[in-house]
Design a protein around this nucleic acid. Structure first.
Length: 778
RNA sequence: GGGCAUGUGGCGGAAUUGGUUUACGCGAACGACUCAAAAUCGUUUGGAGAAAUCCAUGUGGGUUCGAGUCCCACCAUGCCCACCA
């Protein structure tokens, strides 16, 4: 047999699998299904680095195991291809984003195929394909028709460098998540999606799904449910009232002043009654000038100004209290106004101390009763805010709405979908905040679908979270022209059984897609309330030394190079062996050789098994040595269980131990070796297929049956027992499986090592842990 | 400031319910094969000590016959959220 040549066997089998279509999911409603999902990649111009394949390989291992367990497996891939980097590249080079995207996806596809994942390529999708975004637009129209997509003048986060409005989720530390520029606030008409309408269910339904606790927790924190009361404070000399939200109505007797957010609407109304209007306006101006960063960076130092001439009445004790504006009260949360209880709340105390406001002790009251008594009501509030859904950029799905002077906002008729992105000459966004599409008057000018009069198209596009909010549904029926997916296919395939992805998407994509799914569920368009049954997440792969891999540091490693030198199977084994899957791990090119050695060891064993078939060579015997057989069954059990809990590193370690054992024993039966190949095949699909084939098997190993272990073989008839004296190991003895406790205790106390440490001391107690140890207490 | 993780050899990491700490792999040293090198194979590899033995899972306490694992306090690192009433 020839020496191990991964290049040759890997491309050979990849072609063969594609030809035989062994990884195609069939829409057979009778067979039990398994839907495995990875987060589809954004095809950047840089290509894959070694961090990308980690989650793909992991889910590939799971998918391959399920296939061998007899499931009809759907394991698809596609491209989340709208987005800024491609557009920025187009601005720089003038090359159309569609062309760049094609080039990038071709490159990504080639790279992904190199490590041999069992994706069903016949279901490949691309969010920038008009046949795909037609349905993204269609879903948007459903939101619009239900009143959940609406236009609103909102203060948005504006990145002056990227010239784009950002969602709150895309602002990190007051800076643009992509380019790090400090964001500004701008008032602009924006399309919004009413995710807050689903806040309650998005929170509650987390109980129904199998997500890691930390994922549930951070979604819950992001949604920010809090139960409290809305209470109205009457103003003196005015019919207006100030409505506050508080989670602690029981502290109302300690409320010594009220605070409005500077942006509060009542300010305009009360203008004439404010005696120090000059001071107030000066304060408002100073806040406007501050960026988000400055406003929060100031930390504890509170600022504010009293509205002189305005007084309110505390409804609990009828006392007159002052009214202030201060930027420590946020306009978007609650009612944008608070009752300040300096005795109880630290921030209120800071403020009260600074401005010399009364701090009073308060009697304890019951929250519900006092709320009722003062005419308030118990409410549930959320931190979650509606999703700013429009982007003033080119490379996104056009929003299919027409603006008509007479009829207002009119949805495009569904028969006119997809609304195609027109080709433009200049991709540069404008400083006025308009999308580049606004410059194409031919495209903008249109007829109103309702009155047929002159009208203009919406020129904003959707954020790149749009296409990824429903892509898992399209995989079930990717070529459907009549609907985003056929109902029966949805019924068969959804929900996704196992979705693996990054923690960084917890409050973005994962939350958004749950929201879209619930909306579609309410329209009876999908059969389940939740899209994903089980979610797991992977750790990042860092560069050598534990720093983030990035182009600027220059420590990016491409899988192609690794595959070229070591082969795809070695890369796969290494990526799974590198450390616990959920935790990040530092890449070490030096350590890869260990995985390669393991793969070669398997090849070597295979070589001997093959040579011995039908000859007198000693390595092949009808039955493996006992130690090998026992170890094999132990390993089958361990690998089977470890894959389920994503402990790939220990699964591989167990297979390494087994391979070492086989080499040491010098023999294994062909039958047992084939079982070993089977459990290794999800990790190293190429070499195992080759050896399987050499051993005379005609059908692919990847559609063979997953082996089962025999519990009887696992039982040891002799066990090693550790002897401790006062908790310290002093010796060991072998005992038979059926020896009585008394016999064992006797043996232990007579043990040389133990005797030495017991000396003449009286034995106070002997603790026996079956099949593990015996502890003699003196 | 709050929340969630994590801390074990030179390095990546094992240790399923409290029960032999350091599995597996990398690296290193020595040896075999070779004219030689690579590859491969074998042996050794937590620290101190000649040895018996003692000491070691971030630090300090505690519970227990027995603690990497459980409890308390502290230190360090990472991630997430940060004036959310």
């Amino acid at each position: 047999m020839k020496s191990y040549d991964p290049k040759k066997i890997e491309s050979k089998w990849q072609k063969e699998w594609e030809k035989k279509k062994i990884y195609s999911a069939s829409d057979k409603p009778k067979k039990k299904k398994f839907y495995a999902l990875i987060e589809f990649p954004y095809p950047s111009g840089d290509g894959l680095h070694v961090g990308h394949p980690r989650p793909y390989i992991a889910m590939d291992v799971v998918s391959r195991k399920r296939r061998m367990e007899g499931y009809n497996v759907l394991f698809p891939i596609g491209w989340d291809a709208f987005g800024l980097p491609t557009e920025n590249f187009a601005i720089k080079t003038g090359i159309q984003p569609a062309i760049v995207t094609k080039k990038n996806t071709d490159n990504f596809r080639k790279q992904v195929k190199m490590f041999g994942p069992s994706f069903d390529w016949s279901r490949e999708i691309n969010t920038t394909d008009p046949e795909y975004y037609k349905w993204t637009q269609w879903i948007f129209l459903q939101f619009f028709k239900k009143g959940l997509a609406y236009k609103s003048k909102a203060e948005i986060n504006w990145c002056p460098k990227d010239k784009i409005g950002l969602a709150n989720e895309e602002v990190v530390d007051g800076k643009c998540e992509r380019c790090g520029t400090v964001v500004e606030k701008r008032n602009k008409e924006q399309w919004m999606l009413a995710i807050t309408k689903y806040a309650d269910r998005l929170d509650k339904d987390l109980d129904l799904v199998d997500f890691p606790e930390r994922v549930k927790l951070s979604q819950r924190n992001w949604i920010g449910r809090s139960e409290g009361a809305e209470i109205e404070f009457k103003l003196k000399n005015s019919e207006h009232k100030i409505k506050v939200f508080t989670t602690r109505p029981d502290t109302i007797f300690g409320a010594t002043y009220l605070v409005l957010a500077p942006e509060h609407g009542l300010l305009e109304v009360l203008k004439e009654k404010i005696q120090n209007l000059g001071d107030v306006e000066k304060y408002l101006k100073s806040i406007k000038k501050k960026t988000e960063i400055e406003r929060t960076a100031e930390g504890k130092e509170k600022t504010g100004v009293e509205l002189k001439g305005i007084k309110a009445t505390n409804p609990a004790n009828q006392e007159e209290i002052s009214v202030w504006i201060a930027d420590y009260v946020l306009p978007q949360y609650g009612t944008g106004a608070i009752m300040a209880v300096p005795e109880h709340d630290e921030r209120d105390r800071d403020f009260a101390v600074k401005f010399n406001l009364p701090i009073v002790d308060r009697p304890l009251v019951d929250s519900k009763e006092i709320t009722k008594k003062v005419g308030g009501r118990m409410v549930t509030r959320f931190k979650l805010r509606d999703w700013i859904f429009s982007r003033q950029r080119y490379w996104g799905e056009p929003i299919p709405i027409v603006n008509c002077q007479k009829c207002g906002l009119v949805p495009l008729p569904e028969k006119d979908l997809p609304l195609l992105l027109p080709k433009v000459k200049n991709y540069q966004p404008t400083d006025t905040g308009e999308s580049p599409l606004a410059g194409i008057s031919k495209w903008v000018k249109t007829k109103c679908p309702t009155c047929k009069g002159e009208a203009e198209r919406e020129t904003d596009t959707m954020p790149n979270w749009a296409g990824s909010s429903w892509y898992y549904l399209r995989y079930t029926d990717p070529k459907n022209k009549k609907a985003f997916a056929d109902k029966n296919k949805l019924k068969y395939w959804t929900p996704v059984d196992w979705y693996n992805g990054g923690m960084e998407h917890t409050t973005l994509h994962l939350l958004y897609s749950r929201f879209w799914h619930k909306f579609l569920y309410d329209l009876k368009l999908v059969p389940t309330t939740e899209p994903y049954k089980k979610r797991t997440s992977h750790g990042m792969i860092l560069g050598e030394g534990g720093v983030k891999m990035s182009k600027s540091i220059g420590n990016v490693i491409n899988p192609d190079e690794i595959i070229k030198i070591y082969g795809a199977d070695t890369l796969r084994i290494y990526e799974m062996f590198i450390g616990p899957f959920e935790e990040s791990a530092a890449w070490s090119t030096e350590s890869i050789v260990g995985s390669r050695r393991f793969v070669e060891k398997v090849w070597r064993i295979g070589e001997k098994v093959k040579i011995s078939a039908g000859t007198k060579s000693k390595i092949s015997t009808p039955r493996s040595p006992e130690s090998v057989e026992k170890n094999l069954h132990k390993t089958i059990k361990k690998v089977s269980e470890d894959i389920e809990s994503m402990r790939f590193n220990t699964a591989i370690s167990a297979m390494m131990i087994l391979a070492n054992e086989i080499e040491k024993a010098g023999e294994i039966s062909a039958k047992d070796f084939k079982m070993f190949l089977k459990i290794l095949s999800p990790f190293a699909p190429h070499i195992t297929e080759e050896l399987w084939n050499i051993l005379g098997e005609k059908k692919s190993i990847h559609i063979s049956d997953w082996p089962t272990w025999n519990d009887k073989i696992l039982v040891d008839d002799e066990v090693k027992i550790v002897i401790q004296v006062n908790g310290k190991v002093r010796g060991e003895i072998m005992i038979g499986a059926d020896e009585s406790e008394d016999e064992i205790k006797k043996k232990a106390t007579e043990n040389e090592g133990a005797k030495k440490h017991i000396g003449g001391s009286p034995i106070r107690k002997v603790i026996y842990v079956p099949k593990k140890l015996i502890n003699i207490v003196i």
